[in-house]
Design a protein around this nucleic acid. Structure first.
Lengths: 113, 113
DNA sequence: TTGACGCGTAGGAAATTTCCTACGTATGCT
DNA sequence: AGCATACGTAGGAAATTTCCTACGCGTCAA
């Protein structure tokens, strides 16, 4: 039974990115599509473990797969990261608000420096 | 024993943001500093559980605390989210690269539409 | 000083995650 | 056909996370 009944796509993206290995896999795919075996070699990890992580990434749409003979190439599809950027927005706004308040405070303390 | 010997601040920020409750707490703190009790009431969760989550957020620098008599107010300090934005950068670059390749491909298919 | 309240943390149970080896299936080479 | 290789997934052990109640400390009001 899941802990939360309502899970948003953003929830899943954050969960997928939570694990360092999965972020490493995404970074590796910046170099282009690769097989699970190649990725496993690169990170000194058993291939089935890598496959599990890739499954998680695939479920949230961060990687795609393409079959080529007996090889399967995984590729980066970064579109869901837009959800992360959207999530960031109110916090950056909050941050800018604090900065400008700080600036005007400093300005009042020592005006026209 | 930790799973990885080298954990970066970015690792910790991602781990802290992985849990929906902790993201909810950050969102609540956008409204201003609040006590653990007030946050617990807001999310129908026992106060000690909220305190644990706040401790995680505090450890990565996403919240600060201010003692006021017997109350302790937690506040949002969003600076560490800059690490998240930095992490995003190569993927957005990758994305833009794909978009422009797609655009030129479409342009070649039906030029000067 | 005494009692009520807000707080953090200890201790532990339940759920989840992570990683492995073992296995069965499909593909390509000889 | 026969064998080696790449693959996904099952099954299970170990570690981690999450959440609770219980407890002890500090603070305010009478």
């Amino acid at each position: 039974m899941p802990r939360q009944s309502r899970e948003t796509p953003t929830d899943h993206v954050f969960a997928a990115l939570a694990h360092p290995v999965r972020r490493d896999l995404l970074a590796a795919l910046l170099d282009g599509p690769q097989t699970a075996q190649a990725l496993a070699d690169r990170y000194a990890m058993a291939r089935p473990s890598v496959a599990e992580h890739l499954k998680v990434l695939r479920a949230v749409g961060l990687v795609g797969e393409r079959q080529a003979g007996r090889n399967r190439y995984y590729s980066l599809t970064p579109e869901p990261l837009a959800l992360l950027r959207e999530w960031l927005e109110p916090y950056e706004q909050f941050w800018r608000g604090r900065m400008s308040r700080l600036a005007s405070l400093l300005d009042k303390e020592s005006p026209h420096d």
